[in-house]
Design a protein around this nucleic acid. Structure first.
Lengths: 104, 104
DNA sequence: ATAATATATGAACAGATATTCATGTATCGT
DNA sequence: ACGATACATGAATATCTGTTCATATATTAT
């Protein structure tokens, strides 16, 4: 029940890097926007009112950390959350935040 | 089961801020070090081979975001993870990272 | 081939951030 | 009161990061 997490230095670095990427409101918005289903770059930019360039830059970072995956469909590229671990992570965190100020 | 997390802008900001603080290897080390039990500032600094000053600065940030709590016991101040949400969060994330490269 | 659409990349810059150094404050023993 | 120990704070700085602007690449239609 209590994992007493003794993480390797390597894991610690990966974890920090992951958190660092999640630690930006713009990137978080992109991630949560793509959470329900894959979205094209243009759709993301338009919906979140961000420049296409900025969205691409952020997607590149998220891709690099394997937080999202991009798939080309003709002219557009659709991005989705990379896997269930990432989705679960996001949902878990959102839940924690929610509970944090719902509780006593 | 699927919360379809529609977070408020405010929640999103809080979440991003929390992630941002977790997104630094030094702070993460401090947090995981304090996870099993409260530790004094000096103990943290010595064990993690960080300057006392640096540890204090980071603890201040973590305190500000209510990720840790400090309690004075005579001359020393012991810091512990603020509450179960934070502990769970950290353990969850550590588990995700662990699974991420354990799996196929 | 050319043009148009969709996305990616590189350079540049302003603002943020981690770390160090110097110094301040609090608590205890004498 | 004084010195010693433990922690906190402020300023300074070098590095990093998010964003924009300009431009490149890829795909499709004509």
């Amino acid at each position: 029940m209590n994992p007493a997490p003794s993480m390797s230095q390597h894991d610690m670095t990966i974890l920090a890097e992951t958190f660092r990427l999640l630690g930006d409101a713009t990137r978080l918005r992109i991630l949560f926007f793509c959470l329900p289903e894959p979205k094209s770059v243009g759709h993301i930019a338009e919906s979140l009112e961000l420049s296409q360039t900025l969205v691409s830059h952020h997607l590149r970072l998220l891709r690099g950390a394997r937080l999202v995956r991009g798939e080309r469909r003709s002219k557009q590229v659709f991005y989705e959350i990379a896997d269930n671990h990432v989705s679960d992570m996001l949902i878990d965190m959102a839940t924690h935040i929610d509970e944090d100020h719902t509780e006593v």
